[in-house]
Simulated assay, not measured.
Amino acid sequence: MKQSAKITIAAILVIGVFSISILTVPAFAEWDKFNYPQIQGTVPVSSGDDFEQKNGIALSVAMAVGENSVSDGKAMYAKLADVNGFLVHKVILITEDHGYYKVLVDAGNGEALYVSDMIKKDYSHKKHSDKKHSDKMKNYFKGMSDEQIAEKKHQFKEMGEAYKSLSIQDRASLIVHFMQAKLQWDTMSDDEKAQKRADMKQMFKEYLPLTLEEKKQKLHEYIQSLN
């Protein structure tokens, strides 16, 4: 498989997998809008620093620390970030009932520096960001019958289940590869991006109807191809 094709598939799989999380909780929309308390880490950083060079623990380790810090969360995503001048891994953990936790893991010694309470949105008071998210979903489902919408949501849910069935190491590998794909995306021309979007839309359309077991197998096979 050519590298460009592998990157395209990576983006499709990860975007698809995260879609179910975005449909159920606003954790990703609020990723950088969360007010963290003052923390004291072991790796000081400043603007312009190379985070990867200063990082001392693997992404999979940070995700495992996140899962060990709560009783009912699955690490769905993590990334390096500067919080209060210290390098940390921000880890998002999703619960079975659509709540989520945010955990900050020290990028030097792997210590959990902060664990949020379990967060659940109160949709009785929608904020502007929630309305934008709702409008996007309405646009996505526009023209579908109630049965078609229910089936599409079920397919998204299965993609999330397939992703959650992976080991932490495999989830981390997919996230890292997706981040690398995003870097390449940022260097593309508008025409190249438009073509990639069309390709991803088509491949995503073909991937969604697969059974849960087929989705799991596709993810497993793809991650094995990265090794």
Score class of each variant (00 low, 15 high):
Met1Asp: 04
His133Arg: 08
Met137Gly: 00
Tyr77Ile: 04
Asp97Met: 02
Met63Gln: 08
Leu87Glu: 11
Lys201Arg: 08
Arg171Lys: 14
Asp122Trp: 08
Val65Gln: 13
Leu59Glu: 14
Ile57Tyr: 13
Asp122His: 07
Thr24Trp: 01
Ser47Pro: 04
Gln184Leu: 14
Lys79Ala: 05
Asp97His: 11
Ala181Met: 05
Thr8Phe: 01
Ala11Val: 05
Glu206Asp: 10
Asp50Met: 06
Gln180His: 15
Pro209His: 03
Tyr100Thr: 05
Val14Asp: 01
Leu226Met: 12
Met188Thr: 05
Asn84Leu: 01
Leu80Asp: 01
Lys33Phe: 13
Val25Met: 09
Met137Phe: 01
Glu67Ser: 08
Leu87Tyr: 09
Gln38Arg: 15
Glu96Asp: 15
Val105Gln: 08
Arg171Ala: 02
Pro26Cys: 02
Lys153Cys: 02
Lys6Cys: 02
Leu210Gln: 12
Gly48Ser: 15
Ile175Met: 06
Gln202Ser: 09
His98Pro: 00
Thr24Pro: 00
Asp199Pro: 00
Asn139Leu: 06
Gln38Leu: 15
Glu214Asn: 15
Gln40Asn: 15
Lys102Phe: 14
Pro37Asn: 11
Lys102Asp: 10
Ala29Ser: 14
Val45Gln: 15
Met76Pro: 07
Ile12Glu: 02
Arg171Asp: 03
Asp82Cys: 08
Val61Ser: 12
Lys131Ala: 03
Phe204Asp: 04
Phe178Val: 00
Leu87Asp: 09
Gly73Ala: 03
Ser129Arg: 01
Lys215Arg: 10
Phe86Ile: 11
Ala81Leu: 09
Gln195Ile: 13
Ala27Gly: 02
Pro37Cys: 10
Leu183Pro: 00
Ser134Trp: 04
Ala10Gly: 10
Ser165Ile: 10
His133Val: 01
Lys2Gln: 09
Phe18Gln: 04
Glu67Thr: 11
Leu113Ile: 10
Val17Ala: 14
Ile7Phe: 00
Met76Tyr: 06
Glu67Val: 12
Gln148Met: 04
Glu206Trp: 03
Leu183Lys: 15
Gly110Tyr: 10
Gln195Lys: 12
Asp122Pro: 01
Tyr140Met: 15
Gln224Cys: 12
Met144Asn: 03
Ser21Phe: 09
Gln148Asp: 08
Glu158Leu: 13
Tyr222Leu: 10
Tyr140Gln: 13
Tyr222Ile: 08
His154Thr: 04
Gln217His: 15
Asp117Thr: 13
Met1Ala: 13
Thr42Cys: 10
His133Thr: 05
Asn35Gly: 05
Asn84Pro: 02
Ser19Tyr: 07
Trp185Thr: 06
Glu111Tyr: 12
His177Cys: 11
Tyr207Val: 10
Arg197Ser: 00
Lys142Ser: 11
Lys74Asp: 11
Ile92Trp: 07
Ala78Thr: 06
Asp122Glu: 04
Lys54Ser: 12
Lys138Trp: 05
Lys142Thr: 03
